[in-house]
Design a binder for these strands. Sequence first.
DNA 1: CAGCATCCACGGAGATACTG
DNA 2: CAGTATCTCCGTGGATGCTG
Lengths: 105, 105
Amino acid sequence: MQSTDEWSCGVSKVMDIFSGKWKLNILWTIYNEDGIRFNQLKQEITGITNIMLTRSLETLISEDFVSKKRLGSKPPFRSEYYLTAKGKSLLPLMHSLNDWGKINL
Amino acid sequence: MQSTDEWSCGVSKVMDIFSGKWKLNILWTIYNEDGIRFNQLKQEITGITNIMLTRSLETLISEDFVSKKRLGSKPPFRSEYYLTAKGKSLLPLMHSLNDWGKINL
DNA sequence: CAGCATCCACGGAGATACTG
DNA sequence: CAGTATCTCCGTGGATGCTG
């Protein structure tokens, strides 16, 4: 048996992961192109600005869904973003969301 | 092949369904007790207030995830809340979220 | 019992401009 | 190229009190 409290508690936390306008989209974009760079991410995610991308990436990195590799020691800099194992574990969930949307929207 | 645009579009809409602090919790509570009444809903969902419950239910009804049956023509009133077919279609998704949470949190 | 009306606080989202 | 620094706006969430 599954109590309502157990449930709501866990799912609220899962929903927090996806909260924010861009995080899920960023995750998906990195998944499609592992090692993607900052500016390319910005191009692929329509409408996102520098700050929003920076903030969202910070959050995702701090939550250990995304990892960052900084290349070069002086400008112009380059950074690459990857999904962590934890980030990849979200993929089935994202596909579930996508599938539901296709059927029901 | 699945384009990023197709994907992000659909999933953003799915996420909108769950946006808001209480909606998912309400959906789940109604699922566990079909035909539940307003005050009982309030008791089971820890911390929710009258207005938030009212507003969330309004939204869920307008989106056709929940239906409402009003009983009695004069006070004291009674109302019962049910999941619609569309509401029930969310259940696999909610279970997916729950499962991921159990494994990864 | 099952709500509605009002008012308010806070934080996410964004515009704009600057920098190592 | 890959960010950072400010400032502003607005929507969500909530406290409180009233009502058919």
